[in-house]
Amino acid sequence: MPCSDENNGTTGAYGIRHVLAPNPSPMTQNGTNSYLLGQGDVAVIDPGPLDEAHLAAILAALGPDERITHILVTHAHLDHSAGAKALAAKTGAATYGFGAPQAGRSALMQRLAEEGQLGGGEGIDHDFLPDHNLADGAQITVGGARITAHHTPGHFSNHLSFEFGTTVFSGDVVMGWTSTVISPPDGDLASYFAALDRLESLAPHQLLAGHGAPILAPRKRIGQLRAHRLARHAQIAEATHIAPVCATTLARQIYGDLPPRILQAATRNCLAHLIDMMEKDELSVAGPITDQAIFQRR
């Protein structure tokens, strides 16, 4: 049976409880999903934004003899991690994550970040620093629940997914309602494809995402997301064969008329594809890499 997704504070199968943050937006759908896992001693996965009402709702979801001992963060975006420090202060729980916001970057993305002209950095929680770093494959046990951390960058370099039995908490890497934003240097297309492969190899029965409803057919959804990115890659490759192009122009050509915030996200996705093709020696670029940098065929 899947995790209950009907009401805040309800207990679903596997002892997983779901609390929805009140931060709906075009980028978060109905809001950020916070999850409670374990009995007695409880882990919170993604405390969400810094919102006192949401933190109170998380605490209200505890049983009378329960306490939060672990705060697990999938990645350092403000809508997932900003509430961690405040929740830790209220409960005395330790925080866990892969590392600081820049942790886990590929060598290419680290170099591009150091060059300082790429931009990006949308919604980063620059103050996030976990009490304990969880390496890829690290395991912890909380309230009878054994949780395994998997490093799954792509959407964000320090992104972790958490495996518990046949459930995987997939953060923003795999969501049912939309594909994720890949915004270099925090996002990396090659790492994203590797993360999809990693999650697929775990063969979960359900994915519980950072936003949206439970995903009850994970292999199918992962396949859809992989196919979507490959189709987008083919579109962008075709466009570069026609003429040199920048990410801003590509986004307008491919996505059409979008609200400014969504268009910016689409532009960053296009840039991620262009950088990936550059890394594979399919494209070259003159000057620093930005949204307006012109990429052309070698």
Rank of each mutant, 00 (worst) to 15 (best):
A234T: 14
Y35S: 07
A113R: 11
I140G: 03
A243V: 14
V181F: 03
G104Q: 05
R17I: 10
A88N: 08
T249V: 13
V19K: 02
T240Q: 03
G137Y: 11
A86F: 06
H151D: 12
A203G: 02
A100I: 15
Y255T: 08
I182H: 00
Q102P: 06
D188T: 07
A272V: 07
H18R: 14
H159C: 11
R229T: 05
L20S: 07
D41A: 15
G120W: 01
G210S: 09
G97H: 07
E6I: 15
N158G: 08
E115P: 04
T178R: 07
D65P: 02
D188F: 08
N8V: 10
I289Q: 01
P288F: 08
A243Q: 15
E115M: 13
R17W: 06
M27Y: 06
L112V: 13
T248M: 03
R198P: 06
T167R: 02
Q264K: 05
L72N: 06
G123H: 02
I262G: 00
A57I: 10
L208S: 10
A149C: 15
R219Y: 00
H241N: 09
S4C: 15
M1H: 10
F156V: 08
R261N: 07
T32Q: 01
S106E: 07
Q39V: 14
D188S: 01
A231L: 05
L160C: 09
T148F: 08
D5L: 06
A239K: 09
G121Q: 00
A203E: 13
G104E: 06
I215A: 05
A286Q: 13
S25Q: 06
S161T: 15
L118N: 00
S284L: 12
A203I: 12
I262H: 00
A149H: 13
L87M: 10
H159P: 09
G212E: 06
P185F: 03
T74C: 14
E114D: 15
G121E: 01
D276P: 02
G104A: 07
A231I: 04
A86E: 15
S183R: 04
